[in-house]
Amino acid sequence: MPFDPLAAPLDLTRTPVSVAPQNMSTGTRVIGWQDLLPVHVSSETPFADMRPFLRDAMRIHVEWRTSTPREREDMALFERHEAALTLLSMHQVDVDGLMRERRNIIAQNGKARRAPNQNILGQSIRLAGYVVPLAFEEKKVTEFLFVPVAGACVHTPTPPPNQIVHVDYPKGVAFSSIFEAFWIEGELNAEDTRRDVVFFDGAANIEAQYSLKAKTVEVYNSW
Rank of each mutant, 00 (worst) to 15 (best):
L85S: 05
A112C: 11
A112R: 15
Q118F: 09
M90P: 08
E73A: 13
L88M: 04
V62R: 08
H61A: 08
L98N: 07
N109L: 14
T86K: 13
A84G: 01
P69T: 11
Q123A: 14
E82T: 10
V62W: 04
I105G: 13
Q118H: 14
L77I: 02
R114C: 15
M99I: 11
A107L: 07
E101A: 12
P116T: 14
H81Y: 11
H91F: 13
H81T: 12
P116Q: 12
P69V: 11
Q92P: 01
I60E: 05
R114V: 11
L98W: 06
G97C: 03
S124V: 07
A83V: 11
T68K: 02
A83C: 03
A107H: 09
T66K: 01
A112V: 12
Q92F: 07
G110E: 13
H81Q: 08
L87V: 07
L88H: 04
H91E: 13
L88K: 06
R100N: 03
A115K: 08
R65L: 04
I60D: 02
L87W: 00
A57S: 09
T68G: 02
Q123D: 14
R80Q: 10
L121K: 07
M75A: 11
A84Y: 02
R70G: 10
I120L: 13
R113E: 12
V95P: 04
T68E: 04
L85H: 06
N104A: 15
G97L: 04
N119Q: 13
A76T: 14
R72C: 05
T68A: 01
Q123C: 13
I120D: 07
I60F: 00
A84N: 03
M90K: 15
H61W: 07
I60Y: 01
R59T: 05
T68W: 01
M99H: 07
S89Q: 12
T66M: 00
M90R: 15
T86Y: 07
L85F: 03
V62I: 06
N117A: 15
M99T: 07
E79Q: 13
V62P: 03
M90V: 14
R114Q: 15
Q108L: 08
E82P: 02
R114M: 15
M90S: 12
Q92T: 09
L85E: 09
R114I: 12
N104C: 10
R65M: 05
S67M: 02
W64P: 04
M90F: 13
N119M: 10
R59H: 06
D96L: 03
R59Q: 07
T66F: 00
R80W: 01
G110R: 14
V93M: 11
V62D: 08
P69C: 11
L88V: 08
R103W: 01
L88P: 06
N109F: 09
V93D: 04
E73H: 10
L88E: 03
L85A: 03
R59G: 00
H61C: 09
T68I: 02
L77N: 03
E63L: 09
L87I: 03
T68C: 03
A84M: 01
R102W: 01
D56K: 06
T86L: 08
L87K: 08
H81V: 05
I120E: 07
P116N: 12
A57R: 03
N119H: 11
A57L: 02
P69M: 10
T66Y: 00
F78K: 12
E71Y: 02
A115E: 13
T68L: 01
I120C: 07
L85Y: 04
Q92R: 13
T66V: 00
F78D: 08
A57M: 03
L77R: 11
D96W: 00
